[in-house]
């Protein structure tokens, strides 16, 4: 437990603090920029914005989650941090699980907050906003998990790893998008429940996938 707290404190300091120099803010700004540009692109017809706005917010959230991927694990593998932790008997699975929590905290809740101004820009009503924020709450842990799994698999790739991560995330995150954004059209809680279920599975397997990928990378 002490180890978890020490690791979490370092991860959060790196992701939220000065380490990334605004890297944390970047997904949120990107997310807001999409919400801001969309009305300019399709025109100011309120009922079109209301009908399609929620889906646009979801696409923006998915794309925003790609931005922090390339440095999520790569620096620690290159610097030998994982090796030093392994020598201290700290499993890669634990480090990845803590990293997943920190990664979600650094972009999930900020995106949910940013959904409020985004909803205002797109003219979404209260009920839609509620479904949207609940859907993001259910879906962003899954997005974080998919992102982290991809980051662990592409960690050894020299050059092009970042672009590949982005391309890989899109098909794997598709189920989250289908059910998360689908809940907006259906207006029910069924879609949100399915999104949460997918997230749960992804979150559960991520530490094991990440741990195996990092150990396999040592043999290369």
């Amino acid at each position: 437990m002490r180890v978890v707290l020490i690791l979490l404190r370092r991860d959060l300091a790196r992701m939220l603090g000065g380490a990334g120099r605004g890297a944390t803010l970047l997904p949120v700004l990107f997310f807001l920029a999409v919400a801001m540009l969309y009305p300019f692109a399709v025109g100011p017809a309120p009922e079109i914005l209301r009908r399609t706005g929620g889906g646009v917010v979801w696409v923006a959230a998915l794309l925003a989650s790609i931005l922090p991927l390339d440095r999520l694990l790569a620096t620690d593998v290159e610097r030998g941090t994982f090796d030093q932790l392994a020598l201290r008997g700290i499993a890669e699975e634990l480090v990845v699980a803590v990293r997943l929590l920190a990664h979600w905290l650094s972009f999930g809740p900020p995106l949910m907050l940013a959904a409020l101004p985004a909803a205002a820009l797109l003219g979404l009503d209260g009920a839609t906003l509620r479904t949207l924020v609940l859907g993001l709450l259910a879906g962003t842990p899954g997005l974080a998990a998919v992102g982290l799994m991809i980051a662990s698999l592409t960690v050894g790739l020299r050059g092009g790893g970042a672009a590949l991560s982005g391309l890989l995330l899109i098909p794997l995150a598709l189920p989250l998008l289908v059910f998360g954004a689908g809940a907006l059209a259906a207006g029910g809680t069924g879609g949100i429940a399915l999104t949460a279920a997918i997230s749960l599975v992804l979150v559960a397997i991520t530490p094991f996938v990440g741990g195996m990928a990092i150990r396999a990378g040592r043999e290369g």
Binding site: I6, A19, E78, R79, G80, D83, L87, R88
Partner: peptide, 23 residues
Amino acid sequence: ATGLIDERPALDGDKPLGEALAF
């Protein structure tokens, strides 16, 4: 227990050395 020194220092580059060692 085993300690290792190799060419990679495993210290966070953007932190002051004191903080990196404190971790």
